[in-house]
Write a protein that binds this DNA or RNA. Sequence first.
DNA 1: TTATTTTTTGCAACATTATTGCATTTAGAC
DNA 2: GTCTAAATGCAATAATGTTGCAAAAAATAA
Lengths: 135, 135
Amino acid sequence: MKPAEILNTHKLKRTSCREGILEVVINAGQPLSENEIRENLPGNYDRTTFYRSFKTLEEHQIIHKIVIDNQLVKYALHNSITHKQDHAHFYCNDCDMVKCLDDIPVQKYQLPDGFSDNETEVIIKGTCPKCKNKD
Amino acid sequence: MKPAEILNTHKLKRTSCREGILEVVINAGQPLSENEIRENLPGNYDRTTFYRSFKTLEEHQIIHKIVIDNQLVKYALHNSITHKQDHAHFYCNDCDMVKCLDDIPVQKYQLPDGFSDNETEVIIKGTCPKCKNKD
DNA sequence: TTATTTTTTGCAACATTATTGCATTTAGAC
DNA sequence: GTCTAAATGCAATAATGTTGCAAAAAATAA
């Protein structure tokens, strides 16, 4: 699962920004915020470029966004790349960490008549083990 | 369920802004955005006042926030006032409508060891009946 | 009713996140 | 190496939200 290969597969130009983002996201193993990704990136890219890269990668279903409340956005590899099923996400109220709960599949809900669904988000908020032990 | 009573119960001052917001939210029957609330409000309030009013009402668990993706925030009455159970929310990708799915309780998920939860959000995205019939 | 105290409001300034247009630069193909 | 389409950086702009402070309003007491 190399950044260059992924970009080639999707016929996207292999720019250093895109490769860098993918490198960081792949190695992270958990969803990262824009700033967390930037901190782990060698080059210094304009925010515009960053946003456009994220957008492109999202449109090609290479990464996906997880949004907590208003202002916290985290990025992780898309399920089509990780071969995972749709899963719930955990958010730690203390340290802002987000974790993919790979073993917790998203339940299929029965909607009222006339409604059709195409995506379900489950976000479980609480305290992670690290923060729990800090008290 | 009158705005004034609710504010008194929570020992909050009965200002026209707070009463107005509650009036609109109670009559709406479905979650509304800041702008939707303002449009239905007689007075013209500063944004700051609006935000502080929402914050106060939220802290006292009179209203609650539903956030869709990044930038769409909707407000509805808190469960402690409506006497409803925790429920899933539906979001229409076409018209940005948000609906409380009162009959769909939020499932209790089994978290990995060491994690503790205190809140679960379920947002189902799709198309509402109105938008479905537009095609 | 008036005076007093505390809270709320409005304004200005500021911070953050995100988008758009345009000139410049780069990646990939020839 | 040259060419062309796409990506980048910069400046400007927009939307959302917060903070400090003086003025105004609400609740309380006199």
